[in-house]
Computed example of a mutant assay.
Amino acid sequence: MTFCYKKVFPAIFLGLPIVSFFYLLFNESAGSAPVFVLPFMVLLGFFVVRRYTADLADEVLDDGDTLKVRQGGLEQTVALRDIVEVSVTRNTNPARLTLRLTCAGALGDRIVFVPLSAASDCLPYKPNPLADELKQRIATIKATSMRQP
C-alpha cells in the first residue's frame, strides 16, 4: 500500500497539472492566466507530497520481539524494547504511525509507516488498534526485562 502513497499518488497528483500546463500552453484558444498558475501548483504539490511521503517506510514486518523495517534500499531490525514512544497522527490521510527509538539506526531515530486500515480509522476518537497492541507488547517486554536479575 505504501507504494501507492509514495509512487502512484504523486504521479497522478503532479502529472495532471503538468499535462494541463502543456495542453494550455500549446492550445491557442485557452487564456494565459491559468497557464502560469499551474507551475506554482505543481511546485507546491511537490513539497506537500514530499513532506508526507518521504519518511514513510516501505515495509514493516512483525517478527515477534522485533520489527523488520525496509525503506528504499535500507533495512533495519528494531527490537521492541528499543522503542520509546508509539504515536499515531490521525489528522492526515492516511493515518501515520510513528515509532520513536532510543538510538538512531540505519533509518534514523524515527520509523514512520502507514498501518493497515482498520474499521476504527473512520471513528476519529477511537484509538488505533495496532498502536495499542504495540504499546502493550512494548510495556510487557520492558516489564519482564526489569524483573530478570
Rank of each mutant, 00 (worst) to 15 (best):
L44A: 12
T77R: 11
L80M: 15
L97R: 09
S87W: 02
R90D: 07
R50N: 08
T77Q: 12
D55T: 05
A106K: 15
A79P: 06
F47N: 15
G108P: 00
T92Q: 08
Q76W: 03
G73W: 12
T92K: 05
I83G: 01
N93P: 00
V112A: 02
G45Q: 03
N93L: 13
D63V: 06
A79L: 13
V86Y: 11
L116Y: 05
G64L: 12
T98E: 08
L74P: 00
V114D: 03
E85I: 11
E75Q: 15
V88S: 11
D58S: 15
L101V: 01
I83E: 02
L107R: 11
L74F: 00
T98H: 11
E59I: 04
K68G: 04
F113N: 02
V69M: 07
E85Q: 04
N91P: 03
G72C: 03
G108M: 12
R96Q: 13
A119E: 02
S117Q: 07
V42M: 07
R51M: 14
I83Y: 04
R81A: 04
V86R: 08
G108T: 11
L97N: 07
L44Q: 03
C103A: 15
V114R: 08
E85D: 12
E59N: 08
V48R: 00
V49R: 04
G73A: 03
V49H: 10
Q76L: 02
T66D: 15
F47I: 05
P115H: 05
C103N: 13
R96T: 14
L44T: 05
L101A: 00
E85M: 08
R110L: 05
D109V: 06
I111A: 03
L80H: 09
V78P: 15
G64N: 09
L67A: 10
L67W: 13
D109A: 15
V48Y: 14
T66S: 15
G45V: 14
D58F: 14
D82A: 03
L44V: 08
G105T: 04
D58W: 14
A119W: 14
L97P: 02
V49T: 12
R96E: 13
A119K: 06
L74T: 10
G73Y: 04
P94C: 01
T92D: 08
K68I: 13
V84C: 05
L56V: 01
L43A: 15
D62L: 06
L56P: 03
F47T: 09
L44K: 02
A79V: 00
G105L: 01
E59W: 06
T98W: 05
T102G: 13
V84A: 12
Q76T: 05
Q76H: 07
F113I: 10
V69N: 08
D82H: 01
L44P: 04
